[in-house]
Design a protein around this nucleic acid. Structure first.
Lengths: 154, 154
DNA sequence: TTAAACCTTAAAGTACACTTTAAGGCAAGC
DNA sequence: GCTTGCCTTAAAGTGTACTTTAAGGTTTAA
């Protein structure tokens, strides 16, 4: 059983134009056509498209996906290279996880500073961005400016 | 105490050109100059640059950072808007975490398929990409082609 | 039979975030 | 004095991944 590009697009939540673009780039080999030249997608193609979408969403470049397809088309002997690519990509994913954790920490910190300001508390000197936040608040006041705040005003 | 752009660049691991670009875009307000027109970065600027770098690395757009700066410059009354932006960004970060987890699953699955192939095992039908992997392997053989594999060959 | 709704291709356009280039000024060391 | 290495600006260029446009062919329902 085969799917039209519209069905593939709907199943994957990916624009048909993008799927055509991927095929043109060689990322989707062995796609047959019907008598009118329309693409016929097998389940295998949908599976591979889903993997590509998943990898793309997490930062894998098209050029690397191309490399993997080219290697796969070259047969089992290229499995070591493909493993190397995936293991390096895995390192990338771990790095991204750390970046996300750091960003979440920074966001939560900033949110808690906002809470403190709203509650009228004095934010701790050691917190990231506190001075800038202070400066922001001082700008709207006409008295009680610190030197640091003045630094920011000019 | 103030830093030159070179010192800021070294401390942040961020090209001086990029820092200038950020300032031009209005992301770094209140930067003073020395008598020769060279930028003088305060610790506050480095802190804010570090936060921007952290947010950028996890997908926040410059336009959103610009919006946050503009709001901050407008005083405490904009804290609700800034909180809303950060809370939405937080949702974004959670979504990205899920995407990373899914990608890691897919990578590990593919790696285990490679292991199976190398060990000569038959991969399970239900695994993602198995058919494509099978097809890849079948292509290099001259006999024992399945219909599915033939589908991929033409 | 004619309009709607799909499909095709190739090529140009867009968005984003830098990155590089060009042209030149200032200051310290030889 | 002159080279080296930093700094400045404005503007053009780059890379990536689509996305849109233009021009047209086919099928289906009214």
């Amino acid at each position: 059983m085969a799917f039209t590009i519209k069905e593939a697009s709907e199943r994957l939540g990916c624009p048909a134009h993008t799927i055509r673009f991927y095929e043109k780039e060689g990322l989707l080999p062995y796609i047959k056509r019907d008598k009118n030249g329309n693409r016929l997608f097998e389940q295998d193609h949908l599976d591979w498209l889903r993997v590509m979408t998943c990898f793309r969403a997490t930062g894998m470049k098209l050029s690397l996906l191309k490399e993997m397809v080219a290697l796969a088309l070259d047969g089992d002997s290229t499995i070591p290279q493909r493993k190397a690519i995936l293991n390096q990509y895995k390192e990338d994913l771990f790095r991204r996880q750390n970046e996300l954790t750091a960003a979440l920490d920074a966001v939560n910190n900033k949110l808690s500073i906002y809470e403190d300001i709203v509650k009228g508390k004095n934010p701790s000197e050691s917190q990231l961005l506190v001075k800038m936040e202070e400066s922001e608040r001082q700008q709207t006041r006409n008295e009680g400016l610190t030197n640091e705040a003045k630094d920011f005003r000019q």
